[in-house]
Nucleic acid binder design. Structure first.
Ligand code: SF4
Ligand code: SF4
Lengths: 144, 144
DNA sequence: AAGATTTAAGAGTCTCTTGTCATAAATACT
DNA sequence: AGTATTTATGACAAGAGACTCTTAAATCTT
């Protein structure tokens, strides 16, 4: 798997919250509700969303009517932001064979192809905002 | 990381043995020697190479002058064979968000791009034989 | 036959990720 | 004020993957 489980849940939760924020971007969504909709552990999801709030991607609010919401317009949140909040440089600095100290001019046999594919994916995540995905989700009814 | 550590060591060992078999394809290379050259644990590598011999990619021989060698011409061994021996369908059947029961017509928002990048990499592994890499290694002095 | 070398097999350990829980802190409502 | 609701925090348990070690089996050499 390319992403950690935490990262995956984080992306899915962010997408869900972003979709909900289209109708009402001010109110908070309880984590318990998100956990039920995504079918993941409430306890675990709580931990995970804390990293997103610490990264200033989401905001949280305690007490009744509390929960989490996006900290900014979903137009300004890109997938790469969420991924980096969890897996930092672990994904796109990663390499296939895990050799230390590689450079482009001192590569393993697979470096060229890996760099290409990795770069493509990275660009996708850098260019894809939550807003774009929520718009598509409206039309296509994506799975989450 | 895309590949498991076992898979990575397996690929590196296979490359090393394939390179050695250019000069002498009949003799066996002791696992201890491979472990030293690759700078990995001998014990662990022993386990790992057992999966390659079980997959009929390598052959082993016990006793003095024993070790492992490629089971066929390196022209006929493709990276995908080695990868599948370890991570089976875990890599190229894998998905970014890990949702169950996805289909192309019922995807998550990231499915399209992921499928594209994944397919590209898969093709590389399907088309790249050990022989091709050992030839390049001769010219370029790749890292292993 | 005996001893040395080398892989095979299986049990065991370490570490990191994943997941759980109990308790505390903040907020709202009455 | 008191109670219910909801996130925050930190300790803890379970699982998986990575790694180690011991013993057995095969083979060679003398
Ligand atoms: S050359 Fe590139 S792909 Fe190969 S081990 Fe180094 S960083 Fe990884
Ligand atoms: S749609 Fe594709 S990428 Fe998304 S969760 Fe399903 S299989 Fe994975």
């Amino acid at each position: 798997m390319l992403f950690s489980q935490s990262c995956i849940y984080g992306i899915r939760a962010a997408l869900l919250v972003a979709i909900r924020s289209q109708k009402d971007s001010d109110s908070f969504t309880p984590i318990r509700m998100i956990a039920e909709e995504l079918n993941v552990s409430f306890y675990f999801l709580t931990k995970i969303l804390q990293t997103l709030t610490k990264a200033r991607i989401m905001e949280s609010y305690k007490g009744p009517n509390g929960g989490v919401r996006m900290a900014m317009a979903s137009e300004d949140i890109y997938l790469i932001d969420i991924i980096e909040a969890f897996d930092e440089d672990k994904v796109f600095d990663s390499c296939l064979l895990g050799l230390p100290g590689c450079r482009d001019d001192d590569p393993c046999p697979l470096h060229k192809e890996w760099k290409k594919s990795k770069g493509q994916l990275q660009k996708v995540f850098q260019r894809t905002s939550l807003a774009k995905l929520t718009k598509e989700a409206d039309r296509l009814m994506f799975r989450l």
